[in-house]
Amino acid sequence: MSKNVGHSRLVVAVMACVASAAYATDACYQLSSLGMGCSWADPPVSPECLYDTTINNSVDICLSVTPPGRTGCGTTYKVVCKQKIGRLNEFNECVWWPEWYQETEALDATLSGAICPGTP
């Protein structure tokens, strides 16, 4: 689990950087691919259990920032990859309550700027 968190922080950092660049230079971004993202390498072990996976094979956005000069309306994408970790109760069932809140967020990117004209 911790590997995913570390990986996600790296992804978020990269995303923020690209988005800021696009915003600061009045450039546009092109959504070039939607691919596979965080893979949960370490399944939870008893007494923890996998309760809910928001995106079990998450979206990975690849960006290419074009030279400045383009304009257009701003668009924001927020892509999330989460797991809710539950606990085995006294009946050995996986249950979850907010007070046990343990959610691993592997990818969370907010992009600002404009979509390049002609982007499919």
Partner: peptide, 8 residues
């Protein structure tokens, strides 16, 4: 999987 953002 559907992404919905900014009217897109």
């Amino acid at each position: 999987r559907t992404l919905l953002a900014g009217g897109e």
